[in-house]
Design a protein around this nucleic acid. Structure first.
Lengths: 203, 203, 203, 203
DNA sequence: AATGAATGAGCCTTCATTCAT
DNA sequence: TATGAATGAAGGCTCATTCAT
């Protein structure tokens, strides 16, 4: 006899749980939010959730993995339309321009992201398994663009691409961090950073 | 009846508790560290600690307040010896140079700092004033140095001092954030930032 | 509409479930083994199992009933080939000789048997009849052999057959119990018991 | 400042918990009885109990340890008054004579004891740590008496004392086991065993 | 003030059982 | 009948906080 629910349905359920979890983590923080919160928010039963995920940690991990993957994929895809390395870099900075006004959801996501990072710090195994790989993806992604710019003659040839990639993400982290701190976007700061960084790169 | 213990003694006790608490929070994180951990680390009794602080939260908040204040005071004092605005800025950047090697304790302290920040985000009512004031102090602190440099002719006169101050802390946050992320100092990145920032400032 | 599956098929399914259950109970113990374990071991679905048994307890009880019956039947049948009461008794003792070496499966089965016993103790209402009948069967079984030996002149005529039957099972229980305790067979002890018991019986 | 409660008080509390636990284990079985049962039965709070014991297992272990020690000590002491090995053996058998009637408490204790044994079987570490030592104590205890009887000329010199000790406890286990099974004492059976065993020993 | 035993709400997780399909 | 996702009570345990001494 055929399975009662389709794979699709199962995926949808997982999504529901993950979204509820994310909402709860955003509202209360990952460590403070409880499985009961997620149960309540999702409207599902406790057992149902444990049918899809084996632990609170696993939910967290999946959320982390997804977020990284999505960000990575969307970054990668979005720059395909640009022909020059410079344009790519400019575009990436502009992605972090939150526009005007306070976007609570954006803020929440960022908060959860930071909490993930701190939580990972206390769990070395996780940290190593996930963060290193993640770092590598994102770092190499920028590194490649820098190299491309050097190859095409857009960027100074004596720059250390690895260092520039580190610098790029540090700048982004800095502005995001301030976003959390202050509660509103730091677009002017971001703009300053963009200019600085581009000046540093351009021949 | 005269008070049995002096105010001084009380302050000393509070200090002991706060230091133990900070050590425990640094080691395990605020959420995971327990009152029992603090009891054990401080060598005091549970009841004694509750005589000085009404809750774990209160200890945490007090630690935040103090830490901010201390950092502020030490920053303020330390730059007194410099005569030029540029030297002051350079000195401040250099403060965040962690030297070589991984210093776990330094890392832990930074983590606690970041946890503070997230915790604050969840307790808007309580900490709004605290954070705003704190922000203001640190921002104005840099703002004043920028203005000083403009006045003395060291820095470009058309810079927005507020924006430069925001930028400064964003850069610092960015590099610190990466420190947490990677687990080791990002001194080269810091150096790049320093040069960029100074270039942006100098006439 | 005619029944889709025959009674035979139903019996076969029940058997499968019972065997899986027995394997799981033997491996983990009744309390620790879960319905999921049985599901997994049997390859059937949870719902299917609940179509044949109303509860985990019911499976357990049925297993008990069956096991007792089977043991009884096989005991009864196996001694048919012997002509003297003495030979029968000797044969029964030898059944409990586990040979050399530790046989984990044998041990596990014995454990389940003992767990049955304790479980029964906690469910007097349900099992009173079951146990009493069981007891009666096994006791009368031995009792009859004793009487047969007395009738044939092999055994002392002044023995109380009931008491001797009690004694027989106590000896068997004792040696089995030690088997569980120590984890390896107690064949020498069993042999001593056999000799003692036979000496007590023989004229 | 002196501690608030005396060591005595603490010991008394531990005793209370252990007695409640034993009562609950006896009533429902070790695995089925819950910490909540113990909480309820003891009238203490959950936290209080966890102040004295770190886990349900630990309570069980302590109960086991105590029971073994007490039995061992009382056995050892009680036979001091006898001069001959034979008298000692006889006395030990008589200890297990439960008199007439059903003593529920005695039965409960025995049940809990058997459950301990089975539970241990599933937890090898425990089994090894505790049972072996316990076994050794009790076995050597009997072994020594056998040897004493051989030395004094009371018992056959060609007996294997280790085997006789094993046999002794197997007999006791057997009769106790039947006690659990049937729910009432098996004194006549015990008497038969005693006579058999003594006949086997005596020159 | 100091002590630390006591409290009990709450946490994460498990699992026998049910029921829509 | 068969399926397995859903249910939710219950389990062991933790820990911030209280309070009698």
């Amino acid at each position: 006899m055929a399975p009662i629910v389709s794979e699709d349905h199962k995926e949808k359920k997982k999504r529901e749980i993950l979204e509820s979890a994310h909402a709860c983590f955003a509202k209360k923080g990952f460590q403070v939010a409880t499985m009961n919160d997620i149960v309540e928010h999702s409207g599902m039963s406790k057992g149902a959730i444990y049918n899809y995920f084996n632990s609170k940690d696993e939910i967290y991990l999946e959320l982390m993995r997804e977020s990284t993957e999505q960000t990575y994929n969307s970054l990668k895809e979005s720059i395909l339309i640009f022909n020059s390395a410079l344009e790519k870099i400019i575009f990436l900075f502009d992605l972090y321009d939150k526009g005007d006004g306070i976007n609570i959801e954006d803020l929440s996501k960022t908060i959860v992201h930071y909490e993930f990072r701190l939580y990972s710090f206390r769990h070395e195994e996780l940290n190593n398994k996930l963060n290193q790989r993640k770092q590598k993806y994102f770092l190499e992604f920028i590194e490649d663009i820098i190299k491309e710019g050097q190859y095409s003659g857009e960027f100074k040839s004596d720059l250390n691409p690895k260092l520039m990639a580190d610098l790029f993400w540090s700048l982004i982290d800095g502005v995001t961090s301030q976003f959390v701190y202050k509660g509103y976007p730091q677009n002017e700061v971001l703009n300053e950073m963009k200019n600085m960084f581009i000046n540093r790169l351009k021949v």
